[in-house]
Design a protein around this nucleic acid. Sequence first.
DNA 1: TTGAAAGCGCTAACAG
DNA 2: CTGTTAGCGCTTTCAA
Lengths: 342, 342
Amino acid sequence: MAETTRHPDHRYGNRPTMKDVASRAGVGLKTVSRVVNGEPGVTADTERRVQEAIEALGFRRNDSARVLRKGRTASVGLVLEDLADPFYGPLSRAVEEVARAHGALLINGSSAEDPDRERELALALCARRVDGLIVIPAGDDHRYLEPEMRAGVATVFVDRPAGRIEADAVLTDSFGGARGGVAHLVAHGHRRIGFIGDQPRIHTAVERLRGYRAAMEDAGLPVDDAWVSLGSTDPGRVRDAVAAMVDGPQPVTALFAGNNRVTVTAVRELSGRARPVALVGFDDIELADLLGITVVAQDAAALGRTAAERLFRRLEGLPEAPARVELPTTLIARGSGEVPPA
Amino acid sequence: MAETTRHPDHRYGNRPTMKDVASRAGVGLKTVSRVVNGEPGVTADTERRVQEAIEALGFRRNDSARVLRKGRTASVGLVLEDLADPFYGPLSRAVEEVARAHGALLINGSSAEDPDRERELALALCARRVDGLIVIPAGDDHRYLEPEMRAGVATVFVDRPAGRIEADAVLTDSFGGARGGVAHLVAHGHRRIGFIGDQPRIHTAVERLRGYRAAMEDAGLPVDDAWVSLGSTDPGRVRDAVAAMVDGPQPVTALFAGNNRVTVTAVRELSGRARPVALVGFDDIELADLLGITVVAQDAAALGRTAAERLFRRLEGLPEAPARVELPTTLIARGSGEVPPA
DNA sequence: TTGAAAGCGCTAACAG
DNA sequence: CTGTTAGCGCTTTCAA
């Protein structure tokens, strides 16, 4: 038997509601709700009739309405820099797994390193009433999140701390990692070591530079201004920086790369040169083992997991004051960092 | 003047509503709505009063309620395999950019290659009433999406086609790419060429194998059963497959790797061997240039962009029948594929 | 220019 | 075991 023709001038995407299911099954609205949510107190027979109506109508519960009523969305937001960067894939995936274990969905967005876009995204997520927010800051002022946090949006910062507000943060020990990596180069005989890092507005860049300086100072080595370059991780910029340090009047014999993007470009640039230059990079890279690149590895997945777990603990009411957690790094020697000075 | 104490036993995350703003500003609810949405017909003075109340209260519109009323969520869902896989990062980011250009948010989730989880995720996204859905299939039966699609959820499949339903699909030309890659090995003198690919339930694995067979047949070369291995991309499994083919009784002189995971493991496994084995991999990898790995490259970002653009065209009412789009591959010769037979 | 009333689809609270 | 009613916070409609 053909179905009755639907009213045609209806909103696109018109879908059956619980009311429709109820009338089709000849039961009350609440009974449908019970069946859909697996609540007890429905006879097997009634349940079957309701299920049939659901199937026949192609009903699916509208979670927007549910959320509106319940107040919780069972979703968390993740604002990161760029999902296409191999550092964030595993991080995001780790957050997703924790969220999934708590029955929550993950909504993530890329800030593209633009503070305005970070803010816009984070606030859009708040408007969708995510239960919690994990933010990898692009900007350095997060006061815009204060009203949201006061209103109950749990917030955890990852990879970089929040700016100008008190909030949980899960970070990698950038300072210690860089210091150890540079000390490694020193231990292999280098005295003129260059540092190429990310924009100075980025917290990790500053911390790693600080680690570099500490290691140099520990070894009693001077640092020439020409050996330090902070800026965009754009390949052209990094390439120029490498060339300037390696071919300059005070040529470095070793380089410390401040993050994975810089390492990759540095490896490419150095691979074309006759005189070997030692290299240690912050953050591991796929296939670095085959290329023999020595790195100070950080665990992106652990970063995401730790942050997400803290977020859900907050959601469960953890009263504790905001804290900063630092995850350790691991130096992995593969050859490039053990090259002696030329 | 101190604010009146809030009723304490209220739901956590209690937030001011438009009603609160309205009463604080001494205006009607609808006027607040007008201001929040930038609708015309509000005097500058009224608007200012409303804005002040919004600031003071830390009001942010609840999009759940808005969605319930409007019927559209301005969000699209993306179900992929694993965000931690470097192939999906750029794809997801490309989808995000297109969504953003259309004012939509992206909600993505990983199926972990589990068909049940794919289904669960896709349906959860439908329950949240995403306007559209982009799916990278893990399973091969998508009839579960039929009611959703009928109800108006625009759906586009990427990387692999939908199973048992008619739907838009944006794919890479796996057959042609693999055929070309294997032909490249043949052109360099190889006659015994192995193929290691993903699970046979995955469409691209089958297509690439088909391309391999076609190229062998084109060259009039036989294919020994021992030269073909489909299965999990788990490093152990791939390692064993490589060893079996290279050390077997009919040793291959060249390998075609069916995807990026396989390529990486194959490179690692082959790097330890005395006798050189030629290698061409499907899908490019970061740093493959430095390692001299010849690949058949596909453009993950283009895949995502094309799919997302099609999705939004559907959302705008494109009436056309479901179509399959195939994107071309590019052979990039870097050395490993040009090694002559040992 | 402004606002009151209805209702989006669901769940909570309470009756039967 | 089942159903009715109210209302989540917003937009739509219509009247002032």
